[in-house]
Design a protein around this nucleic acid. Structure first.
Lengths: 332, 332
DNA sequence: CTGTTAGCGCATTCAC
DNA sequence: GTGAATGCGCTAACAG
């Protein structure tokens, strides 16, 4: 068993290759400044010794760390893992390492995480941040920040807009003959849920449908859905729009328990949060979280290259994905 | 708008407090070496200037980074976010920052991620690593490693053992009068799925039940479940054990589509992967991923403090959680 | 093109 | 107890 020997430094490589330390440095950071043969020789020596540049020392000298941070409100929320995954891949492509922080929906923790990371990252990605705008601007004044699903003027942000898709969903239901639909929201105080409801109301008005909002019981998302499903089964609604996939599963179960099959007796439209898991039978509104994550990272990288954080408001339109959970309105 | 002014350094604090730079350093790293008043004065000056020690410079000097890395095979897999969350919280408590890597199930990427991180972390957490044992041992020779759900002799590892719970599940079904049960596995080549099947076979034998393995169709986990559910509905089985929650949802839907309600007509036991999402009605085998993540971090921290990676094999027994999806065997 | 010099911010010997 | 000096590993002018 070899001892945990400290990794080789630039000095040892220089010695082995018979050049100066600075040449070794250049061979890795600016090889274009060296003769190709020199670079090759140095690289060979480095490989032989198992040398890799010490990112820390490099950061100390350049001020650039090659790291970024991504902070989400709750990593266990279904929406974020796909976002993180996509962001990760994009960061990896650029050779960046990514810190992840989960703020537990707590603004204070969020701020602490930023502080904890900030000494070792070049930029920060904030997904659905809970921090007040002022605090976020203060952070952005220190180093490049890209916001995801938070709209603050003056900052770089990427937003997923579901309003068009919600409108399309309502139109789709209207075409199928539905006249009365129900909306099952998520957690009572969810900004996202309220936003969707507002968009739905105008869409429903536009298409001449009646919209009932089913106020959520407490409990898990699944339970909220189940209870709502039961109530809806006893109502005149012939279609349901639900906050997310978990809620939708609950709704469907609640409907089934009361004798209503989807889509024969009643239609269900969900808001997708599990792209990979494959609640693949549901007509749903795509969330594009992956696209959002990827775009956010590339914007951050651009900002790092440019030196200046570029204000920009990128809007991603969510798509309506018509699948198997919607059908013609049934008589009730 | 203030310019993105570079954060204050130890030197400026020293100047402001009228002491030497080394005293400022000590005030933050070894305050016990200073007079209390001196520390207070320095701290005050530091606060006033908004000073915080530069973790990078500190790392360069001490060799300790205050960072750890956690690598998972696929962050979008339902099992990992709760694990990450728990690990995160534990790391945060110790003031550690956490890098996250998602290897996309690719051993090569996994190795690259480790290499990419290794210069700036004190230790590494590998969850269900896909790397060969030799490669992992090589990593562990460089710096402390803790394995999650991978059993390699000589290393520190935490394993969740579901065999007792699977046995309890079979016993539970036997008590309810079930005599013939079906197992719906996950992806065909899943090690986890095979392991569970093996454990189930012996449990079924022990309790005198007959076990049918439903070979999975291709497609998403949900679809696998749905197809299996349909097939099971036409079989004599009165209970189903499914690979995970997504599969279980599919199974239930597939059963329902063929006229079988859960738990009245048929019972379903799942293997939990969504602790938070609340497939809360399902009788399930808890995964304890959160506990595993938390424990793994604390083991890693111990190893860092001790200086030496401690070999240890920690086994967490998964619990059987009896909820609403199992009931007395119905006549078929 | 390549060697020389200095310094990034901090911890840590030594003296005092 | 506190100040002075040295080095962590690397990059970045500046020469040559």
């Amino acid at each position: 068993m070899t001892k945990p020997s400290r990794p080789p430094t630039i000095t040892e490589v220089a010695l082995a290759a018979g050049v100066d330390r600075s040449s070794v440095s250049r061979a890795f950071s600016r090889p274009d400044l060296l003769r190709a043969e020199t670079v090759a020789a140095i690289r060979a020596a480095a490989d032989r010794l198992g040398y890799a540049p010490n990112r820390n020392a490099r950061a100390l000298s350049t001020g650039r760390h090659g790291n970024i941070a991504l902070i989400v409100p709750d990593i266990a929320d279904l929406a974020f893992p796909p976002l993180i995954r996509a962001a990760q891949l994009e960061a990896y492509r650029a050779g960046l390492c990514m810190f992840i922080g989960s703020s537990e929906e707590d603004p204070q923790l969020e701020e602490r995480l930023v502080a904890q990371f900030s000494g070792q990252v070049d930029g920060v990605l904030l997904a659905s941040p809970r921090l007040p705008a002022e605090a976020i601007k203060a952070i952005a004044a220190q180093k490049p920040v890209v916001l995801i699903n938070r709209d603050i003027t003056g900052l770089s942000r990427v937003l997923v807009d579901a309003s068009a898709a919600l409108d399309a969903a309502v139109a789709h239901l209207a075409e199928l003959g539905h006249r009365r639909i129900a909306y099952v929201g998520g957690p009572p105080d969810s900004w996202l849920s309220k936003t969707r409801r507002t968009a739905l109301i105008s869409a429903a008005t536009l298409h001449g449908l009646r919209l009932d909002t089913v106020t959520a019981a407490s409990g898990s998302l699944y339970d909220i859905g189940w209870t709502a499903g039961r109530d809806i089964a006893r109502s005149p609604a012939t279609a349901v729009l639900s906050f997310n996939d978990i809620v939708a599963q609950g709704v469907i179960a609640g409907l089934a328990a009361n004798g209503l099959a989807v889509p024969q007796a009643i239609s269900v439209v969900s808001c997708e949060e599990m792209p990979a898991a494959g609640a693949s039978q549901l007509t749903t509104i795509g969330s594009r979280v992956g696209d959002a994550g990827k775009l956010a990272v590339s914007l951050l990288i651009d900002a790092l290259d440019a030196g200046e954080p570029a204000e920009a408001r990128h809007v991603l339109d969510a798509p309506l994905l018509v699948r198997g959970s919607t059908g013609p309105a049934a008589a009730r």
